[in-house]
Amino acid sequence: MADPHHTSSAGEWESHGGESRLRQVLEAGHFAVTAELNAPDSADPKDVYANLTELGDVCDGINATDGSGANCHMSSVACCALMARAGYEPVLQMGCRDRNRIAIQGDLLGAAALGVRNVLCLTGDDVSAGDQPEARRVFDFDALHLLRTAQIMRDQGVLLSGRKLTTPPEFFLGAAANPFVPPQDLRHLRLAKKIEAGAQFIQTQYCYDVPVFEAFMRRARDMGLHEKVYLLVGVGPLRSERAAEFMRSRVPGVHIPDAVVDRLAKTPRKGKREEGIRICVEIIEAVKQIEGVHGVHIMAYRQEEAVPEIVERAGILREKPKG
């Protein structure tokens, strides 16, 4: 077979064989590292690859966001296809805000054909969070419908209508969890529901509040959920107290305790970036000790260059098998 990552001279894509490498890493019991790629506002593939050099060497998977914050960027399917083509392990983020069930199923098939094996199924930020709030919100599905539908396509080999697929997609299915917003005492129950709907891995919202996360994990463990799903904790470096204020007031679902903001505010200007990275490293070290945590998901918005440093300093760098 031809190299799956390259097009043949006729311009045809060879089908991308093989399983999710992220899944293999997790199944082997390694502490996984994934990171978020910021989809460019560009039509040039080079702008996708530009940030990848920083992330590729230290990550087991790279998420392409799907119009995150309801702002338009290059589509997540396209970003993932470009990543797969270059030999990276993409994680396709797919939300329900912009497409109805017909488009969702079509995009899932297309993404699989282009080499995507990991899908993170999301509800999605509302249109009101972005710079085109006058757009129509779709939300034909919720995240659990999306998860279950992808699972049906994979395991039953049919579309939701029952129509048969010639070749079903092979997916490693993920979902998000946000233990940090109300109702905090019940968030583990929604996690359970997502697992029931087909989630095999979880990437959480930014964790800046370790005690709240610990309480969530305790409840999840009491239900045995930590044995049913691979859980990656979302982390990220804050550049300054102003960035923190912006995130917690403007980005939906982000909770940052005052103590973290104060710590950055008290740091002299020159040291803020370093302090943000130190906080991030401390959080990774703390959550790594919690039973049921299988990795971290680093979201370093416009600080991709910090990711290798964070991984190294947190002591979670491994030799990556070359893909």
Binding site: R97, T123, F139, V181, P183, Q205
Partner: peptide
């Protein structure tokens, strides 16, 4: 507003 049938989403405010 997101028409969820299996909510809540992760955007709930503090």
């Amino acid at each position: 507003p997101k028409n969820l049938r299996n909510g809540p989403c992760g955007g709930v405010r503090q």
